[in-house]
Design a protein around this nucleic acid. Sequence first.
RNA 1: GCCGCUGUAGCUCAGUGGUAGAGCGCACCCUUGGUAAGGGUGAGGUCGUGGGUUCAAAUCCCACCAGCGGCUCCA
Length: 696
Amino acid sequence: MVRVTLPDGSVKEFEGPVTALAVAEAIGSRLAKAAVGAKIDGELTDLTATIDRDANVAIVTEKTREGEHDPDALFLVRHSAAHVMAEAIQRIVPGAQLVYGPPLDTGFYYDIAFPEDRPLREGDFEAIEKEIAAIIKEDRRFTRYEMPINEGMTKLRGEGSKYKVDNAERALEVMSKNGDSSALSWYATGEPGKNWEDLCRGPHVPSTGRVGAVKVMSLASSYWHGDETSDRLTRVYGTAFFSKKDLEEHLNRLEEAKKRDHRVLGKQLQLFHIDETVGQGLVLWTPRGSIIRKELQDWIGTELRKMGYTDVYCPHIGKLDLYKTSGHFPYYAESQFVPVMERQFLQAVSDEGCSCADLGNMMATGEVEGYLLKPMNCPHHIKIYASQPRSYRDLPVRLSEFGTVYRWEQSGELNGLTRVRSFTVDDAHLFVRPDQVEEEVAGCLKLVKLAFETLGLKDFRVRVGLRDPDSAKYVGKPEVWDKAEAACRAAAASLGAKVSEEPGEAAFYGPKIDFIVKDVIGREWQLGTVQIDYNLPERFELEYVGSDNTRHRPVMIHRAPFGSMERFVGVLIEHFAGAFPTWLAPEQVRVLPISEKSLDYASKVSAKLIEAGVRSSVDESNERVQAKIKDGSAWKVPYLLVVGPRDEENGNVSVRAFGEEKDLGAMPTDRFVEAISEEIRTKGACSVKDRIPASA
RNA sequence: GCCGCUGUAGCUCAGUGGUAGAGCGCACCCUUGGUAAGGGUGAGGUCGUGGGUUCAAAUCCCACCAGCGGCUCCA
């Protein structure tokens, strides 16, 4: 007797072992038809899986009861689509060896080793999709079969794919760790031995016909086991849905996301420019983008003064010795710009024909002195702290600077504003007594929260970056690290957001709390960060005099609520899709005269706004107002003021707000100036729109 | 850094061995128009850079530079 408990709590009893499909049938024939898989005691399985003991069983169908895509169903369809695509590709390129093909959040990929003389090209996509369509049409059953380990390994070795042998070995390793069963499993699409098959743990949808719509998306390269010294593989990305309609919707969403891409909008809205003549990853802030950056900077600066920070300014370079003490040089030499060498050494080096390695060594030993473009601001700030004796009464000392740093990122990593080689950190370093750490960290987190909340950034996660116990790249004693990590954990827990702990993500000098957001194409970027550091104070022998009149070591807190201005603005561009809130908008108001006759009045209105500190301009073009509106909308200007003789007579402006289809009606110019000033001052907490009665 | 793809007018893109194209934008003229494109005329490109093949190269080949998608890295 097998008792099956269904998700609604009801129980069905069966004489003996049953398949999930039989359970579905017992519930209803429509459900059995719609079923693509099952969840047995929480584990996703094939519909043909046997239930031989009492269990909780849920039948997985395409959509949930609420009509949404079921993530488990999507997993099944994509995992199955990966098989179908692999078969299609092997039909087209017979020598292609399959490596690994997992489902992803948005689709799936298959890593494949292609013969050198027959690489896969994007031109092959059409043919692959045609084959896929044919395989789907054949509607062959996904058939699972198992083999004992020895027999299975013999079979795999006989087939001669080192990748599959390796997959099996890895699977066995995991299985033995879990004390799991002792069989390898294959899935044939159709009949084992007759049709195409792949070593796979499953599960899959019942048949290829259930894979509704597949699209081959892109090609990329990868390494076997992610190891760059190992085989290079071709990663074929695809996505799959149960229906063509869902696939099309997904592709449309991708199109829409592309329009929000900060690199696209940055060009379109003239927010920044990256010029290959200036250099890769070196951002030129154009006037419009500079306004956004400066508004953010002024705002956070005001908040910092309220919180007791003081501003400092530092040069962009420092002597190698400074960075030897801090630990940046030579350990991070590869991720920095090469040092600037003093002239006399350069001369000597060229005369003596030194190699790069020699030079590196000489710089490391101090035989040759040079300067480093600063990869971080902390060493300079530390020296400001150390420039005078400090009493416990002076602490915390909070030094802030929008400091520009330089890092030699790998060329393949550079990406618009989000990964660059020169960026400005909204940096500050707090030198605190040990008893002040908790409160000061809390203050830093409060600031990050304020920044994120004001801008409406809700979709982020918090990561506590801990040290990797197996790595030697960290400086400082384990006890000190334990203390700092405990402090980070406690502070993060107080945030009330989803927090994950990730070993290996710490800075080399200490653990950190990072705020991470996703961009429009799903890539994650670290923005704000708060880091507790017991190590640099040690390395630089920082001190303060305590109430006991003896010397003590301060603790440092590194923090940057935005992270870097470049990355933060990049993320904001995507967050707002280029339509910035009024207080940040490069152009806040554009006045559109109905004809040349109203040009004077338009200029007067605009002058009034500018006088009140609003960024305003007049569209003087020889166009009809319709065209001016279209143009103003394209630039995503928050407010367009249409003015004609009618408005001039009454001292009015006719207001049109970005994103509103209809105009909001006329209002006295002075009142508009007042309203928008208020909107800007409150950073959008109140809006011009609230003050205008909608026009009839 | 590695693999793949791409590079044509300010922007988006077509052209694929035989004298360089479109739309938008820009300039000028006409139009003086009340809420998402009024009309006309014109300027603008040694086809990313450098080599090579060819009677002839934007087009084919090689190298480099840059961008894109990944991988790897990421203080």
